[in-house]
Design a binder for these strands. Structure first.
Lengths: 152, 152
DNA sequence: CGCCAGGTGGGGAATTGTGGGTAATCGTGG
DNA sequence: CCACGATTACCCACAATTCCCCACCTGGCG
């Protein structure tokens, strides 16, 4: 499981130094190959190759006639770019994806279980503040059953 | 069960000396590995690794398309950072988390059953005062069933 | 009164993140 | 098919952080 938050910066060429504590696992589990794609919430998703292959297999099998399914396929598969580590343990984040997520220099890397999310730092801070603020008000509306029973 | 309150300080590098009375249990139950993450109320949560893994397992299985579920995952898993004890029985509280909770020097460590809460001292004192003040007014509204039957 | 245990502080080395220079590669257009 | 510019990969250098070690200071206890 990947977890935790890391503040990082991309250099002028768009490269990101993957934190050392994740590097070994990515190297051994997926030969240092990762797939970067986009998320509907305005960030990028980074998958180890092995994990991505599972997701991709499920995505292609969605019913092609369904509009939502096609949209998901275009967004996720369409933007999925394979990247490898360079000698220094960095990956080059493709220009089009950087542009998509509004990333220029400061970024935040968030572990999310089987994948990572990569956010522009300013965007992340805004979003997080909004989530914290709205969190309490929405109580009592209708929580999904899975959330009701959650004890944290 | 962890209980009790301890006033502590972080040193200039952000390290916290875990009170000796908790140390043994953390060492034996979870190999001295703990996970620190954030709470929506502005403090940090500290879990023994074993306890955290249970929570995380439930969290990752929430439906990815649900907005509230994603928010929870991003906040909790996204900030969950694994920490280990140093030779002196201290843990380094990660910089981004210190910043989140407004922690610089004086802190309060609160035992909360399976986990701990870590508060900035000033924030804690304010909040506690506020809870004491507002506590009674809210009576008579409607208590959730689980609270109605509580005998303290 | 000295010893021990627990909490606090800091120096210094190793690791890790950041930044750039330079050569190789690729895609584009002539 | 070649020439050019842009992009990518490899290399080295610096700066920040983290980790490991040792030292102090305080209060309780023999």
């Amino acid at each position: 499981m990947f977890r935790g938050v890391t503040n990082l910066s991309l250099d002028s060429k768009g490269r990101m130094a993957v934190p050392a504590r994740y590097r070994d696992r990515l190297q051994s589990e997926s030969d240092g190959r990762v797939v970067i794609t986009v998320d509907r919430d305005g960030c990028l998703l980074i998958y180890p190759m092995r994990e991505w292959e599972v997701i991709e297999r499920d995505l292609v099998q969605l019913p092609s006639l369904n509009k939502q399914a096609r949209r998901l396929q275009r967004l996720l598969i369409g933007h999925a770019t394979e990247c490898e580590f360079d000698g220094q343990g960095r990956i080059l984040v493709p220009g089009p994806l950087r542009e998509f997520a509004g990333i220029d220099h400061r970024v935040v890397l968030i572990g999310q279980g089987h994948k990572f999310e990569l956010w522009d730092e300013a965007t992340w801070n805004q979003r997080r503040a909004a989530w914290l603020a709205e969190g309490d008000e929405e109580d009592g509306v209708e929580l999904p059953a899975a959330l009701e029973s959650l004890t944290i």
